[in-house]
Design a protein around this nucleic acid. Sequence first.
DNA 1: GACGTTCATCGAACCGGTTCGACTTTCGAG
DNA 2: CTCGAAAGTCGAACCGGTTCGATGAACGTC
Lengths: 337, 337
Amino acid sequence: MNIGEIAKRAGVSRSTVSYALSGKRPVSAATVRRINDVIAELGYRPNASARALAEGRTRTLGLVIPPASTRLTDVQLSFVASVVEAAAAHDHDVLLSPSGGDHDRSFDRVVTGRRVDGVILMEILLHDPRVERLTSSGLPFVTIGHVVDSAASWWVDVDYAGLISRCVRHLADLGHEHIVLINRSDELVASGYGPAMRATAGFLETAEGFGMTAHDVCCADDPAAGLACFEDIRARWPEVTAAVTINEAALPGVQRALHRAGLAVPGGFSLTGVIADRLAEDFHPPLTAADVPAGQMAQLAVDLLLEQITNPEATPRHALLAPPITLRSSTGSRRRA
Amino acid sequence: MNIGEIAKRAGVSRSTVSYALSGKRPVSAATVRRINDVIAELGYRPNASARALAEGRTRTLGLVIPPASTRLTDVQLSFVASVVEAAAAHDHDVLLSPSGGDHDRSFDRVVTGRRVDGVILMEILLHDPRVERLTSSGLPFVTIGHVVDSAASWWVDVDYAGLISRCVRHLADLGHEHIVLINRSDELVASGYGPAMRATAGFLETAEGFGMTAHDVCCADDPAAGLACFEDIRARWPEVTAAVTINEAALPGVQRALHRAGLAVPGGFSLTGVIADRLAEDFHPPLTAADVPAGQMAQLAVDLLLEQITNPEATPRHALLAPPITLRSSTGSRRRA
DNA sequence: GACGTTCATCGAACCGGTTCGACTTTCGAG
DNA sequence: CTCGAAAGTCGAACCGGTTCGATGAACGTC
């Protein structure tokens, strides 16, 4: 059941059927009705490949995700789901492509085979080879996170430096003097992962401004590492009374370490950071934190990408989101150790 | 840069370029080399839409996921990532489509627009309307989980009944006499979610066989519900000494409730069930559990789907996986309450 | 030396849509 | 009544690949 069949049964030409469906040229009401009847009867749907070939666009967006070996965090996950929904709202589909490791073939296929009209790139590094590949391919793309030279590209990011800075200020207001930043993994930081770098910068700078002593440590993205990391912190700097973190995955371990050390939250120790709201709420006690607005970021990323696709000449736009800190109950005024 | 341009620069016809690339007819070594040189120089990649149109297949698989509003569990997440990787290994891409709620348009687009060669359907119900839609559309598909009338369809599933049964036997061996099943949400059970139904059946049947008293309760998929659920259990059946669960998302709440009640695991209470291995290991103490092999299921689902696509006349195949129970440290012999 | 194969290549048709130009017909304005 | 514009429709070309049938050359066989 293709457009020719519909045309034959409705007694019109193929082009008339096409115009009746797209509305790009006037078609008489009677003809439209006849065509619609035939379509309803035969259950016709235009072939997406043929349409893509003719129109020169696929109505599909590519979403490049970290490979499965890298454990996806809760925020990333809800981001993926939200991208799919935002795209669906604009009648677009989403093609997934893992990247990194040995998955470059997939990335290549998606990028160079004109399979998608544009790409959303997650988890980008400060110097990211994929960004260069995309730039030279001419395919529209939006990154989640931004590269060093960011003015000329399209991106959506969370203002990690600003948010962490606010967290530090919050702790300063509560009287804390010795604080620590629990960052993400060594490798990620070493590879130039933007959020980690910016969090560190915002953390140290703000703490210094308030005359606090501040330490920052890296921690792998899993509970076991969180536990070890926190015990290490206690051993090296027993005077620390509060921690700021951007490492969601390590949280359960940190919680266990706090418990083992006999530290109540927030009575004996305060904890805050940039955390997905669902995770912050599931913590015990609920975490005072800057909630990463994954859904909003996804929506924005899709909007920016579609705008860029529609108008390739548009000047690049970005969005740096700084969600407010939600006061829950994991931070309190400093107590003597 | 299309195939015609390549042909022109190599001084051959378009069909020769096509045959040189596909190898479906012999082409002289000299010509192949000349064509490859031109292709390398111009960075040519065939247009995926044109190829899909001509070949009648898209080399793309559809993956129907639960909508973003339904919080995806850890298993589901790693399943998605694994499907993408398994498909990539066969040079296929994955198109995501949410379903349920108001996302039927997306599902429709994917299914009826010939955008994909086949579909993998996650989280299916015992009576699932999407299965009927797919069946009548003639598109190959594989379901994760199986419907009542399952002999005639392709699916991969975890043997929940068998696994839960093993968990119960394990508890019986340890001397427990009063146990409870923490199932998934009311709504899910009410809507006929297979795993939940089969878990219940396997649980009650096996417990009865061992002469145990067994209760089963539903619990929403979040920590707060887990906490409330467990406190309810303690209030109603204080004699219960062990729980079996298939509800991963509720676990943190259950843990908190155990802690509040002053119950050590496994000293005061035993806990086991069907849980993703990563979650089981992150628990404190690590959970004795049947690890859901998400990666293996994804691999199998993709293999089955590709087989069905290649050979539509093949008789349906299924796989019911029963991973072994991994003994960790959350179960112990019964103590007097 | 005639003949059937295999090799290598070409041109044309096809996949199923969209879109452009051209051709009637209808209609309202001058 | 005439003329131009708009409505309504058609045929043909095009998007960029794949594939079929045909053709000519090289080759081994009887």
